[in-house]
């Protein structure tokens, strides 16, 4: 995944069964963001792979004050890259569950 300066990782083991998965996002390189992130804590949240989109979560993070509006695209892209990886792995490791 392209280095956006925002890191997204699994916050729990993924067994491919649940449609929602816990993720953790943090800013690795604040210089890559247009706005100043609120604090550089790791933000953990649950993401529903079937019903939600990375843009939903990114917008909610902006509205919750974690990021500046001008960084919504970077945040959404970082989540999208990780979600794509999770789905790619799920299709290979647990194709029957899909």
């Amino acid at each position: 995944a392209e280095d956006t300066g925002v890191r997204v990782e699994l916050a729990e083991e993924d067994h491919g069964r649940k449609s929602s998965i816990a993720l953790r996002l943090w800013v690795e390189d604040p210089k890559k963001l247009k706005g100043k992130p609120k604090d550089n804590g790791a933000i953990e949240f649950t993401f529903d792979l079937e019903k939600e989109t990375p843009d939903d979560v990114a917008q909610e993070m902006i509205e919750s004050g974690f990021f500046h509006e001008s960084d919504v695209k970077i945040v959404a892209k970082s989540i999208r890259d990780r979600v794509a990886l999770i789905q790619w792995r799920r299709e290979r490791i647990w194709p029957i569950v899909q």
Binding site: R7, W26, E28, N40, G41, E44, F45, T46, E60, S64
Partner: peptide
């Protein structure tokens, strides 16, 4: 370690915890 929690109006819960030093890139 200190955890803070923000619940968005749509109901999603965001839990903020310190990033382990090892994960923060030296800028």
């Amino acid at each position: 370690n200190s955890l803070t929690q923000v619940v968005h109006s749509a109901g999603r819960r965001f839990i903020v915890s310190p990033v382990p030093e090892s994960r923060l890139r030296e800028s």
